[in-house]
Simulated assay, not measured.
Amino acid sequence: MSLDLNDLLRDWPHEPGMIKVRKILGSDGKEKIQLRIDLGLIQMETSGRPDGQEPHDCESLLEYHQQRAKRNEKKGEKYALDAEEVGELQQEGIQYYHRYISLFQLSDYVGVIRDTQRNIDMFNFVSEHAQPEELAQSVEQFTPYVLMMQTRAKASIELEREEFATAVKKIEEGIEQIRAFYEGMENPEAGANSPELGFLTEWVEEVRAKQPLTKLEKMRREMDKAIANEAYERAAELRDLIRQQQQNKK
């Protein structure tokens, strides 16, 4: 059997600037995710740790450290992560990053929310336990990007349902979360130049523009048009209907 990966990749060429993802059935009968990169591909499990490993008989290194931290807490002892352990957690987080960007391309938004939340939990755990505290900055710096991807997934679910108002709300919540992160870091300049905030701010305006008008908004526009055309009787009828609608909402 040839071990040359070119035989496998020839029919699935890499295209610069494009994220190419597919699902395949593994030899174990389970579905796998493949991400095409310039020098080959990355293959991942659809759940659990992306590489399928179970470090220390746990689903992930994060879960392993969380369990140890809980045991220490029960003993009244502080749990600390050293530089090597933070580095290992960061490398594990990259696996989940590869999977959630792949899942986003596959429109598996629930999976994106799961994996982004997992990395956010890891950032928070490292922030709480890294010694010295400065070690946490190596992972915390990615928080705005992960929050942006999670927000995109949450809003995309609502857009698929054509729930435009809810999608707008989800994007606004994501924007506030990212702003709160920068405020907590006391770095307003970085917040002002944040590409994540820039993207979400533009996107929420696009979604608002596509949002269908409500019945009340349609009547208001029709009334304005009637007034402009000096159709005052029709404008008065619409005015009364609008007032009735507003009263019914109270």
Rank of each mutant, 00 (worst) to 15 (best):
N193F: 03
V146H: 08
R243M: 05
S138R: 12
F181I: 07
W203V: 05
D38Y: 09
S156T: 05
R68C: 04
R234D: 15
G93E: 00
E230N: 06
E59S: 10
L62I: 03
V146A: 05
R71Q: 13
G26A: 00
K32S: 00
L197D: 05
R99D: 01
H14L: 02
L8A: 10
E85F: 01
I227G: 02
Y145S: 14
L216I: 03
S107C: 07
L8Y: 08
V139R: 02
I33R: 06
K30R: 09
Q53T: 12
E45R: 14
Q53C: 03
R99Q: 06
A180C: 02
F123S: 03
G52C: 11
Q117I: 00
D51I: 02
Q245A: 15
S102R: 07
A231P: 01
E45P: 00
F199S: 07
N187A: 14
K20N: 13
F164Y: 15
E206W: 04
L25M: 11
R179T: 14
L41P: 00
A209N: 09
Q105A: 13
P195N: 02
Q177W: 01
P50N: 06
M223G: 01
I178L: 05
L62Y: 04
F123Q: 13
P144N: 10
A136E: 05
G198T: 11
I227S: 02
L3E: 15
A236H: 11
Q141D: 08
I171E: 06
S47G: 05
W12F: 11
Q117L: 10
K30L: 05
E63D: 08
I113N: 03
D240C: 05
R152L: 13
I178E: 03
E205T: 11
L8M: 12
V126E: 01
A236P: 03
K20V: 13
G48L: 06
Q91S: 11
